[in-house]
């Protein structure tokens, strides 16, 4: 099959060229972790990683940022918007994470769009790297993606022995590739990562059926209600907003939040909508596997990157949850058992 090929030295040269007139964000090794960081030279870029510790979500929807600031001047309130983001090349994104961005687009780009997110998405070109090897908890192909899925990147590179097979997916990607040394040829397409399938078929209906199951309280028993699963997740998008005085100005800061945090639904007066561990646990999985697909034409709010599975300190494994829920008997529970199951309040 006719395809295009870029040698390893040509990739290094291309990266160098890109770095001259773009901000390039790529996987970098930092103290034993692999993280997306801005890079200045091609030698900083890690190419032999399965996936990054944190998902590339943080470059579009940062962990914490001032979204605008305001100050008072002559009895008027002056709003100061955030500076427009730079053009960015996000190099080395995995197909699951690119799909994660497409999932995030749904809530963030729906009118009225989130301005900062929209600008960052518009000014970013995604250079994807197909997965030759799967991580031990990868399951992208059970969630609608795949190790060579080019659907959500601008360019897809697939590593072969001497270099990379190059696919320009969008016009933006083709434009980026004009500075690359690419040859036409018939490079043999390699075998991509093999993945252990997760029985996810019918999960949306099963989630609806098991809404009141005591299963949620049981899984929640061992949950310690940290925010790790949501923070490593490429699709979780909950946040909190507060104002911070900085000298004469006030900055409005937005930071990631998570439904697993005990204070997440606490409102004025101290009322908590989800006081029990089981309700909080159900919220996480129901958002991913029931509410989100219900709102967005069946799209699951999980891309199978497996990060939450490895990051969870107590081994709450979404693959296991999906299979358990699918296997639960039809009428497993009495009403509101999620509140009663397991340990209850925490």
């Amino acid at each position: 099959m006719l395809n295009r090929f870029m040698s390893r030295p040509a990739l290094q040269k291309w990266l160098q060229t890109l770095m001259a007139d773009h901000q390039v964000v790529a996987p970098v090794r930092v103290e034993g972790l692999v993280l997306f960081r801005p890079v200045k030279g091609p030698e900083e870029v890690a190419l032999d990683y399965r996936n990054t510790t944190m998902s590339p979500k943080e470059w579009f929807f940062p962990l914490s940022e001032a979204i605008f600031s305001y100050r008072r001047e002559d009895n008027k309130v002056i709003l100061e918007p955030k500076e427009a983001p730079q053009e960015v090349v996000l190099f080395g994104i995995r197909p699951c994470d690119a799909r994660g961005l497409a999932v995030l687009d749904k809530p963030f780009l729906q009118a009225p769009a989130d301005g900062l997110y929209a600008q960052r998405r518009e000014r970013a070109t995604l250079v994807g790297l197909a997965c030759r090897e799967a991580g031990p908890t990868c399951f992208c192909d059970s969630m609608g993606g795949g190790p060579g899925d080019a659907s959500h990147v601008d360019v897809l590179l697939t590593e072969v022995k001497e270099g990379y097979i190059v696919k320009a997916v969008t016009t933006k990607g083709a434009k980026l590739l004009t500075s690359a040394q690419v040859q036409e040829g018939e490079t043999e397409e390699p075998v991509l990562a093999g993945l252990r399938p997760v029985k996810s078929r019918g999960i949306v209906e099963a989630m609806r059926r098991q809404f009141d199951s005591d299963y949620w309280g049981k899984v929640a028993d061992r949950c310690i209600h940290c925010n790790l699963c949501a923070f490593v997740c490429p699709t979780c998008y909950c946040f909190d907003i507060r104002d911070f005085p900085v000298g004469e100005r006030i900055e409005r800061v937005r930071s990631w939040d998570s439904c697993q945090s005990p204070a997440f639904t606490r409102i004025a007066g101290g009322y908590e909508r989800r006081p029990s561990k089981g309700e909080r646990m159900r919220q996480r999985f129901a958002h991913k596997l029931l509410y989100f697909p219900g709102q967005w034409e069946g799209v699951l709010h999980c891309v199978g990157c497996g990060r939450c599975v490895t990051a969870c300190p107590v081994n709450i494994d979404i693959r296991e949850v999906i299979e358990d829920v699918n296997a639960l008997p039809e009428r497993a529970a009495t009403a509101s058992a999620a509140e009663k199951g397991g340990d209850g309040r925490a």
Binding site: V30, E31, L33, M54, L63, S64, I224, H225, C226, N227, L228, F231, S255, W256, S258, S261, P313
Partner: peptide, 16 residues
């Protein structure tokens, strides 16, 4: 400082 720059304040340290 290098350690603190990496912290994502997930509070897993506290929760465990």
């Amino acid at each position: 400082q290098a350690q603190q720059e990496r912290c994502i304040r997930c509070y897993a340290c506290r929760q465990t």
